[in-house]
Amino acid sequence: MNEMRIGVVLGSGHGTAGTTGALVDDLVARVRAHGAASTPGVELNVDTVVVEDLGLGQSCPACLSCMTAGEQACPSYDRAAPARQLMDAADLVVFATPVHSFQVSAAMKRFVDHFAYLIHRPAYVGKPAVLLSTAAGGGHDAALGYLRTAVRRWGFHTVGQLGVNGPGLRRPAYRGRVDAALDELAGTVLAAPTAGEPRPTTADLIGFRVARLLVEGGREDGPVDAAYWNERGWFDADWFSDATVPFLPNRIAATVEKRIRAGIEQGSAKPYRG
């Protein structure tokens, strides 16, 4: 690889000037340093989209046009296009968000909502992602867990994540541990694009089959989804790609799919009560 492209999706209201932006800069600087030392001659290009600059509005209108008529029908399609172009071109994407009230920021949630069609039509199978978060307190587990689940549904596989306490960076001991984690993560970033796609987990395989059920059940309302799956042969596959599908997890996923399908057909599905 003579060139590596890193795309950054930054969900901070402070843009690149905030703590989250600074954490991204720290990681990129280390990736450059590791790359210069281990793989000289490789050109590193970094493109960043600040979500707030896209002008996506107060929230996704939930009109479902992206599902039923294609993403081009989304009222915010043109405004969201720079982010889609960034993710398309990148060899690895960094999703970075501050933690707000124990979750991702409103800006990052709005970003995820505007790409909801990717849950039905995954476009990034095999592409690695890194997740970053900063917080004044806690909440990294919920924020990073949500991001990990969301981008996995789009096809990304997360190769590394890091949550950092902003005020703690003023303490030398904590700062040192963060620096060590960033150094380790930088090595992961460099290796990820050529490392290949990992084998899907049981949860991944169940997610694949549930997505297929949704697409099958919505053929009339969402022919765009069905056409997408048809073109890729996914209706007759066990996974989105030719990655090795482990036998036992696949059998478990098939059993879960059978039960869900029976519940839908028999009308025995129940509302969630916790």
Rank of each mutant, 00 (worst) to 15 (best):
G7Y: 06
V8C: 01
L10M: 08
G11A: 07
T19K: 09
T20I: 04
L23W: 10
V24M: 04
V28F: 10
R30S: 08
R32V: 10
A36W: 00
A37M: 10
L44G: 04
V50H: 00
V51Q: 02
G55Y: 11
C60W: 12
P61N: 06
C63I: 11
M67R: 14
G70C: 13
A73E: 07
C74E: 07
D78T: 14
D78G: 07
D78N: 13
R79P: 01
A81L: 14
Q85W: 06
D88F: 11
A90R: 05
D91P: 11
V93E: 03
V93G: 03
V93Q: 04
F95W: 11
F95I: 06
S105Y: 08
H114C: 11
I119F: 13
I119C: 09
Y124H: 14
K127N: 06
A129K: 06
V130S: 01
L131W: 02
L132F: 05
A136W: 12
G138K: 02
G138M: 01
G139C: 07
H140W: 08
T149E: 13
V151Y: 08
R153S: 15
W154M: 14
G155Q: 11
H157S: 01
L162Y: 05
V164K: 05
P167W: 12
G168D: 05
Y174R: 10
G176L: 06
D179T: 12
D183P: 02
T188R: 14
L190I: 13
E197W: 03
P198N: 04
R199P: 01
T202C: 14
L205P: 04
A211E: 02
R212D: 00
V215K: 02
E216C: 07
E220T: 14
D221T: 14
P223S: 07
P223W: 05
W229H: 04
W229A: 03
N230L: 06
N230C: 07
N230R: 13
N230W: 00
G233H: 08
S241K: 03
D242Q: 10
F247M: 09
A254D: 11
A262R: 14
I264S: 01
G267N: 03
S268C: 01
R273K: 08
